[in-house]
């Protein structure tokens, strides 16, 4: 464990708490659209469920197991909240990204490019590829509405920072322990790249107190 990865994981936790806070806030405004993509959240739940199939078989540390359990539980809880409890605040007309294509693409790629052709390895690889593109429905929704609430931008910022710090962590690990993981690196680089436009607007507008609006 290094500081980059620790802070990255903490930012990931922070993003989930921001999301839960945002949902709590949305509930108090009756009938208001949450502007949180259900598809992205459902994809994240799929990512964690397919990645942590080694939860009971492969013990790394108490930290590792606790985080895995938290990510699985919180992602399922968020999907549950959006699907049942706050259904009225979720507007499917804005959430129109064709998620089935990225799921299909990630599954096909996982079958072709993987470290070992076993059920667990293919599922793990699928989760890596799927995570790389899971944010697309959310970003697509943002593009469609052209603006975002501050709290939503903080959520995306926390997620983007988490991904960015993982890149730094991999460079650090490569030099300190000759750690290599090409599948994770390439998928991770793609994933972080998706946040570039968002980061630009976040830094030039939101942090200066302006509303998040697309040009």
């Amino acid at each position: 464990m290094n500081l980059f990865r620790l802070v990255a994981d903490l930012m990931h936790l922070v993003s989930i708490f921001i999301l839960l806070l945002k949902m709590q806030k949305t509930r108090s405004v009756a009938g208001r659209c949450s502007r949180i993509s259900f598809k992205t959240q459902a994809l994240y739940a799929t990512v964690f469920l397919t990645r942590y199939t080694d939860l009971f078989a492969n013990f790394q540390s108490l930290y590792n197991t606790t985080m895995k359990v938290f990510f699985i539980a919180s992602s399922l809880y968020i999907v549950f909240l959006m699907k049942f409890k706050f259904k009225a605040t979720n507007d499917p007309r804005l959430d129109t990204f064709k998620a089935q294509y990225v799921v299909g693409g990630a599954a096909a790629l996982a079958l072709i490019v993987n470290y070992a052709f076993t059920v667990q390895e293919v599922l793990w690889t699928f989760s890596i590829y799927l995570e790389a593109v899971a944010i697309l429905p959310q970003l697509f929704m943002l593009t469609k509405t052209g603006e975002a609430e501050v709290i939503t931008t903080h959520y995306l910022f926390a997620l983007g920072t988490y991904r960015g710090l993982y890149l730094v962590n991999w460079i650090y690990r490569y030099w300190t322990e000759y750690y290599v993981d090409w599948i994770v690196w390439i998928a991770g680089a793609v994933q972080t790249g998706l946040y570039c436009d968002f980061f630009y607007i976040y830094f030039t507008k939101v942090l200066k107190g302006a509303k998040f609006e697309l040009p």
Binding site: R5, D54, W124
Partner: peptide, 10 residues
């Protein structure tokens, strides 16, 4: 040999 993937990351 090839570097082993540790899978210790989340």
């Amino acid at each position: 040999g090839t570097a082993e993937v540790k899978k210790d990351e989340l």
